[in-house]
Computed example of a mutant assay.
Amino acid sequence: MNAVDDAEVSPGLRDAVRRLEALTGRVVRDVTDGHARWELYRAALASDAPRPGLLAAVVVEPDGAVASAAVGEVLEWVPRADRDVWVRALAPSVRAFSERRARELGVLEDLRSGAGVRELGPGLPDGWSDWLQLRIGAEVSDPSVLRLLAASGRTRRIRRAAAEALG
């Protein structure tokens, strides 16, 4: 998260920041400071009301890392059907992480709701990130899923967590 030149701060970004300031009660003293914008975006994540304003800010955010971080955070809080809108708000060059996180959140939700591993498709859990495997071990109660992770999770930590969840 780097500062951007004042010339890189578009009127759209200034407007989006002002709207988020009004919704969150936070003030960004230097709109060119990516860290300050990130703190404002984090404040906007704390409640539902500022989310449309946050989406507008992400669309005009000049720092791809800041935009990607905001989207990565919000994906857990928005309905599954809305995640693609957030991912597409990012520049194509910084979408990969958020695309993967959105897919993985879908897998986690499916498993939490009782979908079996076979229903999710081939290549599992090999294609699951460590983040997803750890979340599954902590949040999914299906013994067949936990046994799969206990036997073939990517790391010892993942295998141990799944084995402990089995009891």
Rank of each mutant, 00 (worst) to 15 (best):
R100W: 03
A81P: 09
S93P: 01
E99C: 10
R100N: 09
E73P: 03
R101G: 02
W86S: 04
A70E: 00
E104A: 06
S98H: 01
W86F: 09
R101Y: 01
A69E: 12
L105N: 05
V87K: 02
R83Q: 14
D63E: 15
A56L: 08
G72L: 04
R83V: 05
A65V: 13
E99N: 00
W77V: 13
R101S: 02
V85I: 13
A102D: 01
R103N: 11
R103H: 14
V87A: 01
V87Y: 00
L55H: 11
P79I: 07
A67H: 05
D84W: 10
R101L: 12
V71T: 07
P92F: 01
A96Q: 13
P79H: 09
L75N: 04
A65I: 11
L55Y: 07
S93V: 13
A89K: 00
A91H: 12
E99I: 06
V87Q: 01
R103K: 12
R80E: 15
V107C: 04
R83D: 01
G72K: 04
W77G: 13
D82T: 11
G72H: 06
R80C: 11
W77H: 15
L105A: 07
L90V: 06
P79Y: 05
V85G: 05
E61T: 07
R103E: 14
A81T: 13
A69H: 10
V74I: 15
A91Q: 13
P79E: 14
V94Q: 02
V74G: 04
E73D: 15
V71I: 10
D84G: 11
L75T: 04
E104V: 09
V78A: 09
G106M: 05
S93Q: 13
A96P: 03
L90H: 00
A96F: 08
G72C: 08
D63S: 12
V87T: 01
A70Y: 08
E76P: 05
E61K: 04
V107Y: 08
A69R: 11
S68R: 12
A89Q: 00
R100M: 07
V60R: 04
R83W: 01
L75Y: 06
S68F: 07
L90K: 01
F97D: 10
R101E: 08
G64A: 09
P62Q: 03
A65F: 11
R95H: 00
A91K: 12
R83F: 00
V66H: 01
E73S: 14
A69V: 11
D82G: 09
A65G: 12
A57R: 00
A70D: 07
A70S: 12
A65Y: 12
A81Q: 14
V59D: 08
V78M: 09
V59R: 15
P62N: 06
A91V: 07
V78Q: 05
V94C: 03
S68Y: 03
V66D: 03
V60Q: 03
R83G: 10
V94R: 01
D82W: 10
P79N: 08
A102M: 03
G72Y: 06
V85N: 05
V66Y: 00
R101C: 03
D84K: 12
W86I: 06
R83K: 09
V107E: 07
V71E: 05
P79K: 10
E76F: 14
V85S: 10
E99R: 12
V74F: 03
V87S: 01
A56H: 04
S98K: 04
R88A: 14
F97K: 09
V87D: 02
V58D: 00
V85Y: 01
V58K: 02
E76R: 14
A56F: 09
